[in-house]
């Protein structure tokens, strides 16, 4: 879709929010889409047995979903419309009542994360909480967070043991987590050909799942192994679906879309801690507002020995490791 719209040359998506200028063309497109949806539905119901492609309504909704704009270019009204559609689709397909939020970033907030290498004991509570919170695919056992068992002296998770299978903590070893670092100068954003992935004003790097074409350039570009690809249609048991969702966060993904840690955007924009930080039994995970001098993360940065993973790459991550 991105290429179609960009062909006019002047229709480039910039990094900032931009009011849409060509409402005439958009209105026309919308009408055309609606007409096509009605036509398409007529064709489906005419030729195929009902139920093969879902109900009439489901097909119409999916058809309209296909022609929506990039999240950053949507007006308030368009966002509400697509959210209504998505919520209705979830009801039709899985019979769950989800609430999808489109809450904007708060002004004066820049999220940052601290990981205490000394305190982490490898209990993996964070991973489990993350999987539940973000509706991750259970079939391929997708996880955003990885915990590594490290020998003394090792400084980067690449060198650690990622497949430990023993009671933790083991004496003389330490544990180090790796996940999306939410770089301020993120290579994945530069690599994305459709601008589906971008940096939100509060510093979170997000993916507009519906604009992702699944090329996996970002996965190759990320030096932190922070991105995950849906090789299969994600499977989440209906009972375990987290119903409080965000458009850019834990809403339903599809096969062929890239996804990643979003600092639990659906929680943190409300003021809550990310699921991993809340679940951590040892308090190794510190989360807060980097722009607030009174926040915990600022205390960590100013008083503890901190380092960032692969800082020399110039990616400027907002994820600090520290030791006691």
């Amino acid at each position: 879709m991105g290429f179609l719209k960009n062909k006019s040359g002047r229709q480039q998506i910039t990094d900032e929010h931009r009011p849409c200028q060509d409402s005439g063309r958009r209105e026309f497109l919308k009408k055309a889409v609606k007409a096509a949806a009605i036509g398409g539905t007529a064709v489906v119901t005419g030729c195929q047995a009902p139920g093969l492609l879902g109900s009439k309504e489901e097909f119409a909704l999916q058809f309209q979903e296909y022609f929506k704009a990039h999240y950053r270019l949507m007006t308030e009204k368009e966002r509400d419309t697509t959210i209504t559609r998505l919520e209705r689709l979830a009801k039709l397909q899985k019979n769950v009542d989800v609430q999808i939020s489109s809450k904007e970033a708060m002004p004066g907030v820049l999220f940052g994360y601290g990981f205490n290498v000394t305190r982490c004991e490898g209990y993996m509570e964070c991973v489990s909480a993350c999987v539940r919170e973000n509706n991750l695919d259970r079939k391929s056992n997708m996880q955003y967070i990885r915990i590594f068992e490290m020998e003394p002296g090792q400084m980067t998770p690449d060198a650690g043991q990622g497949k430990f299978f023993n009671e933790v903590p083991v004496d003389g070893r330490f544990y180090m987590g790796a996940q999306c670092n939410h770089c301020d100068n993120a290579p994945c954003i530069k690599a994305c050909p459709t601008k589906a992935t971008y940096r939100e004003p509060d510093g979170i790097v997000v993916v507009d799942y519906d604009w992702c074409i699944g090329c996996r350039y970002c996965m190759a570009a990320c030096p932190y192994y922070g991105r995950r690809f849906n090789w299969n249609e994600p499977v989440v048991p209906v009972k375990e679906i987290t119903k409080k969702q965000h458009y850019l966060g834990n809403r339903q993904r599809r096969r062929g879309q890239m996804e990643k840690c979003t600092f639990c955007v659906q929680r943190t924009r409300e003021g809550r801690l990310p699921a991993c930080a809340e679940a951590c039994p040892t308090g190794a995970r510190i989360f807060g507002n980097l722009l607030d001098p009174k926040s915990e993360i600022r205390f960590v940065l100013e008083n503890k020995k901190v380092f960032r993973w692969k800082e020399e790459l110039g990616t400027d991550p907002k994820f600090w490791y520290f030791i006691d």
Partner: peptide, 14 residues
């Protein structure tokens, strides 16, 4: 002191 125990879940390889 926190007790030794089995992790809640298992990691995927890097």
């Amino acid at each position: 002191r926190f007790e030794k125990r089995w992790p809640k879940t298992y990691s995927r390889p890097f």
